[in-house]
Design a protein around this nucleic acid. Structure first.
Length: 124
DNA sequence: TAACTGACTCGGC
DNA sequence: AGCCGAGCCAGTT
């Protein structure tokens, strides 16, 4: 039997256990097809610019979240698919990006700056 | 229970 | 111009 309120309780908006993980996933899902963003932009949009690491960590758990989160559209500030090695298979990230019109070269997003999608601006 | 790591980023040297 | 250290939050060992 489960405890009263385990930390693993599904977070929902309005709940005190609502962690910014949910926000990260929400923002990630808002990323338009053919666009990419970086961890810092999301973190900053959430008000925790220094927590860019956690954004990546949230992506690690994105696979267990529903609906699926387009974590492949989130890359580091260099436009490099730093998290592709965490995909399964790793090449899936690049494959999906290319499928959406994003061109990848040497594990880096081509014209990253031009395809960059900043939630702080687009959602402002 | 405490400590470390981790899909990051920025500032300083 | 490149390298190093510090900060953040949560999950894992």
């Amino acid at each position: 039997m489960k405890k009263n309120a385990p930390a693993s309780t599904p977070s929902v908006p309005g709940d005190s256990r609502y962690s910014f993980f949910e926000d990260v996933w929400a923002v990630a899902r808002l990323i338009p097809k053919g666009r990419v963003t970086n961890y810092g932009a999301i973190a900053k949009y959430l008000g925790t610019g220094l927590s860019a690491r956690m954004v990546g960590w949230a992506m690690n758990a994105c696979d267990k979240v529903k609906p699926k989160v387009p974590a492949h559209r989130v890359v580091n500030r260099n436009g490099m698919l730093s998290g592709k090695m965490h995909f399964s298979p790793p090449e899936a990230m690049q494959q999906r990006l290319e499928k959406e019109g994003i061109r990848i070269e040497n594990d880096k997003v081509v014209d990253f700056k031009g395809k960059f999608w900043d939630p702080a601006i687009e959602l402002s």
